[in-house]
């Protein structure tokens, strides 16, 4: 799956002998690569949660005792932070998905690659910041 034809860029100031993560210092990935990587990571992350969520909702059929007893997991602070990260991933995936569809069906979209990516970030923040605010407020209250 390729998202963009931006030519391979130089690895910034890294020297030929640099190894490991240090070789990427100063490297600015092209927006197409960044948006693609985020799309895949968020997509697989949301899928992982979806599978867990199907299992937990299946337990509803075993009655209130079984289901309510296991809810302490989702109410644990670690899971509530995870819940906010999940929403962030979902919102990014939704916003960037629209960008992908635009590129697929709108002939000239590729000319605005950078602007479209910044638009994705803007839409993401416009949705995520208020959502996170309400979720954190409910959590600390």
């Amino acid at each position: 799956m390729t998202t963009g034809t931006v030519p391979t860029q130089e690895r910034g100031p890294a020297t030929a002998g640099t190894r490991g993560i240090a070789a990427y210092r100063g490297y600015r990935p092209p927006v197409g690569m960044l948006s693609w990587a985020l799309h895949r990571i968020t997509g697989l992350g949301v899928l992982l949660f979806l599978l867990l969520h199907i299992v937990d909702i299946f337990l509803v059929g075993y009655g209130p005792e079984t289901f309510n007893e296991l809810l302490f997991i989702y109410r644990h602070p670690v899971f509530r932070i995870g819940e906010i990260i999940l929403v962030a991933g979902l919102y990014y995936h939704a916003a960037n998905g629209v960008r992908i569809i635009l590129i697929d069906f709108w002939e000239k979209a590729y000319r605005f690659e950078r602007q479209l990516f910044y638009g994705v970030i803007a839409v993401f923040l416009a949705g995520f910041l208020p959502t996170a605010f309400f979720m954190i407020r409910a959590m600390v209250r």
């Binding site: 009655g63 209130p64 289901f67 309510n68 989702y74 509530r80 819940e83 959502t131 309400f134």
Partner: peptide
């Protein structure tokens, strides 16, 4: 399920 209601309210009922 996560903004109007939260995991505090959501249970079997």
């Amino acid at each position: 399920m996560h903004v109007i209601n939260t995991v505090d309210e959501i249970d079997w009922n």
